[in-house]
C-alpha cells in the first residue's frame, strides 16, 4: 500500500506539470465558462444547449486528458529511466502499475472536478433565467437538475477511470501513440455498444458470422453510454442512486478487468 501511495503521489504531482495537460484544462475551462454564449444559437432551448455544451465538454476534455495522460504514464517512466530506480527498490510491478494508475486518475479527476466546478457556477447563474417559459417553449422544471448534474459529473469520473485504465494497460503492450489511438477507438465504439447490440439482433438479417462478431463486441466493450445521463437532466427525471451505484459498479468491474490484464502484461514486460 505504501509503495502504491508513494508512486501515486509522485505521479499526481508530475501530472500537474505536463504542459499539454494544462493546455487542455485551460481550453476546457474557457469553453465551459463561456458555454452560455452558445445558447443564443437556439432560442427557446438555451438550457439544453448549456447542459449539452457544459457536460459534453467535461466528458470530452476529461477523455482527452485520460487518454493522453494514461497512455504516457508508463512509457514516459521507461523513456526517462525513472522506472529503473523505482523497480530496483522494494516496489513490485503491480504496485508500480497501480500507483501510476491511481496517481494519474487523481490528476484526471481533479482536472475534471475543476471543469465541473466551473460548469456548476455558470449553471447556477444562468440556468434560472433560461428556465423561464418563452413564447415558443414551456417552462423547464428544475426540481432535480442540480443534483442530477452532480451525479452526471460523478459518473463521468468513473467513465474516465475506465478509459484511463485502458490507456495505461494498452501503453504497456503498445507504443504510447498506438495506445492512445486504441483507447480512443475503444471509447468511441464503446459509446455505441448498444447499437452493436441492436445490430446483432436476429431481426436485422445479419449473417450468423456477423452476428457472433457483433455480439462479442457488444459483450466485451465497456458500455460507455451508460455513464451519460444528460437526457434525464433535461427532462428533469431524477437519476436514482441505485442506477448511479450500478453504473459505478460496472465501471469498477471494468477497471478490475483492465488492471488484471495490466498485471498479466506488465509482469512479462521488459523495461
Amino acid at each position: 500500500m505504501r509503495a502504491i501511495f508513494r508512486v501515486a503521489r509522485a505521479t499526481y504531482y508530475e501530472g500537474w506539470r505536463k504542459r499539454f495537460l494544462n493546455g487542455i484544462l485551460v481550453f476546457a475551462i474557457l469553453i465551459i465558462g463561456s458555454s452560455w454564449v452558445f445558447t443564443y444559437l437556439q432560442p427557446g432551448a438555451e438550457l439544453k444547449m448549456l447542459i449539452d455544451v457544459g457536460l459534453g465538454s467535461i466528458r470530452f476534455f476529461g477523455m482527452l486528458i485520460a487518454v493522453f495522460l494514461g497512455s504516457r504514464l508508463v512509457p514516459d517512466e521507461i523513456e526517462k529511466r525513472t522506472i529503473y530506480t523505482l523497480l530496483s527498490k522494494p516496489v513490485t510491478r503491480m504496485q508500480f502499475l497501480l500507483g501510476k494508475f491511481f496517481g494519474g486518475l487523481a490528476t484526471v479527476v481533479s482536472n475534471m472536478a475543476l471543469m465541473g466546478l466551473t460548469f456548476y457556477i455558470v449553471f447556477m447563474i444562468k440556468a434560472p433565467q433560461f428556465a423561464q417559459p418563452t413564447e415558443d417553449s414551456p417552462a423547464y422544471k428544475m426540481e432535480f437538475m442540480y443534483e442530477n448534474i452532480a451525479k452526471a459529473v460523478l459518473l463521468s469520473f468513473f467513465e474516465m477511470a475506465v478509459v484511463m485504465g485502458i490507456a495505461v494497460v494498452a501503453s504497456v503492450v503498445f507504443s504510447w501513440i498506438l495506445a492512445a489511438i486504441f483507447s480512443f477507438f475503444v471509447y468511441f465504439t464503446g459509446q455505441m455498444s448498444e447499437f452493436f447490440g441492436h445490430l446483432a439482433d436476429p431481426d436485422t438479417g445479419a449473417s450468423p458470422v456477423a452476428r457472433v462478431v457483433l455480439l462479442t463486441v457488444y459483450r466485451v466493450l465497456p458500455h460507455f453510454e451508460n455513464f451519460d445521463v444528460r437526457e434525464s437532466i433535461l427532462t428533469d427525471v431524477p437519476v436514482i442512486w441505485s442506477y448511479v451505484g450500478m453504473t459505478i459498479g460496472m465501471g469498477v468491474l471494468y477497471i478490475t478487468i483492465v488492471l488484471a490484464l495490466g498485471y498479466l502484461f506488465f509482469n512479462q514486460r521488459e523495461v
Binding site: E194, G197, R219, H223, E225, N226, D228, V229, R230, E231, S232, T235, V237, V239, I240, Y243, M246, T247, G249, M250, L253, Y254, T256, I257, A260
Partner: peptide
C-alpha cells in the same frame, strides 16, 4: 470471473436506462 459477473449487470443497466428514461 469479473467478466462473467459483468454481463447481467450490463443487461440490467441497458434495461434501466430505457425504462427510467435516461437514454436519449
Amino acid at each position: 470471473g469479473v467478466f462473467i459477473g459483468l454481463q447481467p449487470l450490463n443487461d440490467a443497466l441497458s434495461y434501466n436506462r430505457l425504462v427510467l428514461g435516461y437514454a436519449r
